[in-house]
């Protein structure tokens, strides 16, 4: 077991290096620091001097991969790649183009993101599983048919509409909740209620349908026939035998998402002005702040790989077939 986890962590290293190299190529090789300086300083009324100064202050003046002028280990380490990319492995994200400490911003902004993401995930999961079970219990009837139809219709609506209509109806017309904004502490609830609701509703369509498919796949397996031959009722079969089997893919599917919850939701946070990592990323994209985007890409990959690792571990915990092999 431990050997397995350690091996998975070792596997993650080359992948993260790959991610790093990829983002580095994207940000520093496709466009030169010169190009970026122009973007930031504007291409009119700017002197070459100003550009050079911007490049030096941001530390973009070093050679790309190999520094022939430096000595010893510095030949590798005193380069743009090492300075800009490898330091991410120590979670040293450096400063943003506006001069703020990125690491500090991230540690501050992840809490509002979590405050939105965790309740959305849990409520959504609970509701989706319940609805899916209900539909499977009534499979072949009108309830199931209409359920599927509604799910497909919900899936066909862009999330943007849910947000915009939610804000318009609940916040603007009924004035039940503030349109947007955020406060820390308990008063966050009134700001989070609407975004959580929107996120749950937007997820129902695909979620319920997916879980329903999982349940239906299980319900056609041979062991269900055995359970029927034992004299169990349909409800008992569904809630005991089928649910326990289907929960394995459902839970492990959720586990992979957990670490990424830190990243927050780009859309919801920006629409509802929640100062989380999602809106942080969106602001950075709009301001073309490459340092932040680069940090978020790296952080995102680390969290995703962590999610995969947790998935594998959770498989060994919940699935006897994996655990006992």
């Amino acid at each position: 077991m431990w050997a397995y986890i350690i091996r998975r962590i070792l596997y993650a290293i080359p992948i993260l290096i790959g991610v790093n190299l990829l983002t580095f190529l994207l940000f520093f090789v496709v466009n030169t620091p010169q190009d970026m300086a122009v973007v930031h300083l504007g291409d009119r009324y700017v002197t070459q001097e100003a550009i050079d100064r911007w490049i030096v202050t941001n530390g973009y003046d070093k050679p790309t991969f190999y520094n022939p002028k430096a000595q010893g280990i510095d030949k590798i380490s005193d380069t743009l790649f090492y300075q800009q990319s490898m330091r991410l492995f120590t979670f040293n994200f450096g400063t943003s183009d506006t001069g703020r400490e990125i690491g500090h911003d991230i540690s501050e902004r992840m809490w509002p993101s979590l405050a939105l993401a965790i309740p959305s995930l849990l409520l959504g999961l609970g509701l989706n599983v319940m609805l899916a079970l209900l539909m499977v219990l009534f499979r072949g009837t009108q309830i199931d048919t209409w359920g599927v139809t509604i799910c497909v219709a919900l899936m066909s609506i862009s999330g943007l509409f849910f947000i915009i209509t939610g804000q318009y109806v609940l916040a603007k017309l009924f004035k039940w909740v503030p349109i947007s904004g955020y406060e820390s502490g308990l008063s966050a609830i009134k700001f989070l209620a609407l975004p959580v609701l929107v996120s749950v509703i937007a997820g129902i369509g695909s979620g319920v349908r997916w879980y329903r498919t999982l349940f239906l796949e299980e319900i056609n397996k041979d062991y269900v026939r055995t359970a029927r031959a034992k004299g169990l009722s349909d409800i008992a079969i569904l809630f005991k035998h089928v649910l326990k089997n289907a929960l394995i893919p459902i839970l492990t599917g959720v586990v992979v998402l957990i670490p990424s919850l830190f990243l927050g939701s780009l859309l919801l946070e920006s629409f509802f002005a929640i100062p989380g990592l999602g809106s942080y990323t969106i602001d950075a994209i709009r301001a073309q702040d490459f340092a932040i985007v680069r940090s978020m890409v790296f952080l995102g990959s680390v969290l995703y790989i962590l999610g995969l690792l947790l998935t594998d571990i959770s498989y060994t915990l919940v699935d006897p077939r994996v655990r006992l092999n």
Binding site: D222, Y223, R225, A229, K230, G231, N245, R321
Partner: peptide
């Protein structure tokens, strides 16, 4: 079922519930 009629199926590999 189960009380007065017992049933054995052809495929023992899949007829038992894998998680119990």
């Amino acid at each position: 079922r189960g009380r007065r009629i017992g049933v054995i199926f052809q495929e023992p590999m899949t007829s038992l519930n894998p998680v119990f």
